[in-house]
Amino acid sequence: MKTPEVEGLLQDLQSRYAFQEDLLNSLNATVVAQGRQIEQLQRQCQHLQQVIRGMAEDVEQMRPATNERPPHY
């Protein structure tokens, strides 16, 4: 036999459990979304590194050789 006090405590615990379960699901969704965003940012960084390397190679090819004489000689 449940007393009104025990019944109230049980309802309070059930309510808290439901809230915590909802919060846990929300936090889990946030972690998953952040993981996807981190992966996307890593791919973008890798792409930018490749672009920068390509630009650096282009700049190196455009530099005159240090052993060459200037054209006015």
Rank of each mutant, 00 (worst) to 15 (best):
L24V: 05
G35L: 01
R69Q: 14
M55P: 00
M55C: 05
R43I: 00
G8A: 10
L9R: 11
Q20P: 00
R69L: 05
T66W: 08
E68S: 14
C45T: 09
G54H: 03
K2A: 13
Q61Y: 12
A18V: 05
Y17F: 09
E21G: 01
E7K: 09
D22R: 05
H47E: 13
Q40E: 14
Q61S: 13
D58K: 06
Y17E: 12
A56C: 08
C45I: 10
S26C: 01
L48H: 09
Q40V: 05
Q14K: 09
V51I: 07
D22G: 03
L13I: 13
Q40D: 10
F19Y: 08
A18F: 08
V6Y: 04
R63A: 07
S15N: 13
L10A: 14
A29M: 06
P71E: 01
Q44E: 11
N28C: 09
E39R: 08
L24W: 10
P70M: 11
H47P: 00
D12Y: 05
H72Y: 04
T66D: 14
G8E: 09
T3A: 03
Q20S: 06
E21L: 05
G8K: 11
M55T: 09
H72D: 03
R43Q: 06
G35F: 00
A29V: 01
V59I: 15
M1Q: 07
M62D: 13
Y73I: 02
P70G: 14
Q34L: 06
D12I: 02
I38Q: 05
Q49G: 05
D12T: 05
C45E: 12
V6H: 12
T3V: 04
V51P: 01
H47W: 06
N67Q: 15
D12R: 10
P71D: 00
L9C: 07
V51M: 03
N67D: 15
V6T: 12
Q44C: 08
L27A: 11
Q61H: 13
Q40C: 07
R36V: 02
Q49E: 11
T3Q: 02
M62L: 15
R16Y: 03
Q42R: 15
G8T: 05
Q46F: 07
D12Q: 13
E68G: 11
Q50G: 15
Q34Y: 04
Q11K: 10
E68M: 12
M62Y: 12
L23D: 08
L23C: 07
E5L: 09
G54T: 04
L13P: 01
R69N: 13
